[in-house]
Amino acid sequence: MPINDKNGVKVWQVRDRNSQLIRWAMWMAAGIIFYVSWMKISDQTTWFFVYDAPRIAADIGGRAFPPRWSYISQLGKPIWDTLNIATLGTFFALCMAVPIAFLAARNTTPSKLFIRPIALLIIVSTRSINSLIWALLLVSIIGPGVFAGMVAISIRSIGFCAKLLYEAIEEIDENQVEAITATGATRWQTMVFGIVPQILPAFAGIAVFRWDINIRESTVLGLVGAGGIGLQLQSSLNTLAWPQVSLILAVILVAVVIGEWVSAKVRGAII
């Protein structure tokens, strides 16, 4: 009881004594867990390296600057590959995501009992594995190169795009669909006239948003041999060529900023 009667005065508190005690116990437990975890991490850390970190970082930074500008002549093709991986990967992902989204949306799926769960399973499974891991798998299956990277990007993107798209499909105005059905239109005509116009803005938004993410993801795919600028990053890191590393990072930054600018423009134009 939060209200106590003391000599006829009603004293009000947020919690009664028991719930107050429970809260204290919870905070206590959380504190102990934090302390124990901290000790564990601390025991396994070589603190000498950590104390040393600022000096090392400054050292690497010093070596990395100025970037080796002449190296840029060798980065043109890799960054072009990276952009292609992102763009084609997004394109193929969308081609597969659209039918999956229609099968997964409650209001368009042919069968809630059988097909919808399968579509949802595809969405969850492709979403749950990082594109770097897909790339790792695909490089061993279809060999290193740009193609493996593109496939990795598109597989990873299917679930993302399909999920957002099927949510958009479920939110459409059913009245418009009903009106088209009432004219005697077929299922496919109803889809083209009643549903597609309603989800088109969402579709465009999802496409450029994912493309924007994929530019960032495809820059690292080279680390596992799946093509793109990550390959150069990897070899520069291995040979401790810090001026090259800083130039690569700068190029990636520029590419990502341009990608983000384009996608913001496109989304602004449509929505």
Binding site: D173, N175, Q176, E178, A179, T183, F193, P197, Q198
Partner: peptide
Amino acid sequence: GMIFQEYALVERL
């Protein structure tokens, strides 16, 4: 032919 309360036009067409 059917006519609806909220018009039910496809708004974006």
